[in-house]
Design a binder for these strands. Structure first.
Lengths: 107, 107
DNA sequence: CATTTCCGTAAGCCATGACTAACGGTAAGC
DNA sequence: GCTTACCGTTAGTCATGGCTTACGGAAATG
């Protein structure tokens, strides 16, 4: 039940904010902590939790640790969410498909 | 940021279990509480939280309260999840669309 | 080496929230 | 009306976990 892990981990607002910041691409810790209302060690702790949950990965680059998004950590959560729609899910996907084509057309 | 609410609310394992049980259809409280390792009032409290978050709705039927799933409470969470895929999301939707048609064909 | 930067970890504090036990309220059956 | 079934609410306890401060390690710079 890895979806449970993802849910638990992403429940915290601060941690979620850190996670969302990684949408813009890989970032070192101090850059992730900048502007947040908590200290840098707090961000480090959040990153550890995110990493243990498989939502984030880390690589060293000289003196700094670069964290990056790991979308695979979200697929189980997505599948779990899907399980709450019945056949209506297919309709939803069709709708998404239509809006995608519409957007494509406007480009 | 209602997706945050849904995440927070669904983070608790017990509450999640209650929520998942509603997938099988509307249920009175004592039926939802049966088999769970917590007391019935605990389930009542969880249901209140779920209701406040818009994830569940309630109707009275004689002496019992019937709770049922409310999927609209999940759409924002789903949209948020989608935001973590970039263009890859569109590919995912296309794939879902294809598999849907494939299933349709098999029917 | 000494220093500085960047970061993870440990210890301790404190708020949040999940839980139980006890109570009260409402509908149905007799 | 009395009892029973079903449920929400309250009060109070206790564990979880997020935060800060302080510290120590590793790489770059001189």
């Amino acid at each position: 039940m890895a979806y449970g892990n993802a849910l638990t981990v992403l429940a915290d607002p601060t941690r979620r904010k850190v996670f969302e910041r990684l949408r813009n691409g890989p970032r070192p810790v101090n850059m992730l902590a900048a502007g947040l209302p908590v200290s840098r060690p707090a961000v480090s702790q959040h990153l550890k939790v995110l990493k243990d949950a498989g939502l984030v990965e880390e690589r060293s680059e000289g003196v700094r640790r670069i964290y990056s998004l790991r979308r695979e950590g979200l697929v189980e959560l997505r599948a779990w969410l899907d399980s709450f729609w019945g056949d209506a899910l297919e309709a939803f996907r069709l709708e998404a498909e239509k809006s995608y084509k519409a957007k494509k057309r406007n480009t």
